[in-house]
């Protein structure tokens, strides 16, 4: 009995009434066996979870410590006293520009970039994987090659180009390239599209659907798990990207959260580590919200794909 109870305590949804009502029904041996199995499952996965979320716990705990304690009790997970000063100091930002501005900028940049990237990546991926045209392999190879050149050596020519276009200090250099989709996502979606039986396309074609119709009506709904994954990645990668904003945005009023975070630390002078940890912790919140929100659609994919059989 002890085992079963702790299995529920370990269970993340322990408090939901639905589970409570289901849980104590141990009438048949099979259910009992199922419960034991479930217990070990949660014990293993849950235990593993702890290792995985350790950095988050550490980060949040450090962000609550008084500044002069952070380095002296750096491995101590539970702060001896709790303060929210770090959050207040950190949020105040620099000069008269607070994190409210940085969050606004980041959200605008990230949401726009993600929407653009996901849609156009899906479109291009469909073209590459479902339409047969001359030069397809060549262009695909070109696309993959663009992924292989380290960004460090293209920064400067790219900067000169955008600077000549007078696009510095605007969102154009950050957003316009996204209208081509991103090679990583295009390739990823391609792999998913290729997993969809072509008979579906053919059936739709017989029903009078063109390539465009097939893309919107058949492919897009079916690659939902892939699109959702793209959205999560794109959001996170854009959110944490500091290099592009650093190079192209000069005015601090346009800085993003990731860039602001990096403006806190100076190895050679006074650094408010408490504020860094506090703002780092806060900066994870939008990413988490997006993840929790979108990952539900990962499940839904199953029922949609299930229809095809």
């Amino acid at each position: 009995m002890k085992a079963q109870i702790s299995s529920f305590i370990l269970h993340p949804l322990f408090f939901t009434p639905k589970i409570m009502s289901l849980s104590f029904d141990l009438s048949t041996p099979k259910q009992k066996q199922e419960l034991v199995k479930s217990f070990f499952y949660h014990l293993f996965v849950g235990g593993f979870c702890l290792v995985m979320v350790y950095p988050l716990l550490w980060l949040f705990s450090s962000s609550l410590k008084p500044t002069d304690e952070i380095w002296r009790t750096v491995m101590q997970l539970i702060p001896s006293s709790i303060t929210f000063d770090n959050y207040v100091n950190g949020w105040a930002g620099f000069g008269n520009i607070s994190f409210t501005t940085f969050y606004q900028n980041s959200l605008i940049y990230t949401v726009l970039a993600t929407l653009i990237t996901v849609f156009f990546s899906g479109m291009v991926a469909y073209g590459f994987s479902r339409v047969n045209f001359i030069g397809r392999k060549f262009w695909f190879a070109c696309m993959i090659t663009t992924l292989m050149l380290p960004v460090q050596v293209v920064i400067i020519p790219q900067y000169i180009m955008f600077s000549n276009l007078k696009w510095l200090n605007t969102l154009y250099p950050l957003l316009l390239p996204r209208f081509g989709g991103q090679a990583f996502f295009i390739f990823m979606i391609m792999q998913f599209v290729r997993g969809i039986p072509k008979e579906l396309d053919e059936a739709a074609e017989i029903d009078g659907c063109g390539k465009v119709g097939i893309f919107f009506r058949i492919i897009l709904p079916l690659i939902q798990p892939a699109l959702v994954t793209c959205a999560i990645f794109s959001f996170y990668w854009t959110w944490e990207d500091f290099l592009t904003p650093l190079i192209y945005l000069n005015s601090p009023k346009l800085y993003t959260v990731s860039l602001a975070l990096r403006s806190f630390a100076d190895p050679s002078a006074n650094t408010d580590w408490g504020a860094i940890f506090a703002m780092s912790a806060l900066s994870l919140v939008p990413v988490f919200i997006i993840f929790i929100f979108f990952q539900r659609y990962l499940v839904q994919g199953i029922s949609t794909t299930g229809l095809k059989g």
């Binding site: 291009v124 073209g127 081509g180 465009v212």
Partner: peptide, 13 residues
Amino acid sequence: IGYIFIAPWLLAF
């Protein structure tokens, strides 16, 4: 049709 679909990438490239 193929080139229309990959046009966004091609242009950006």
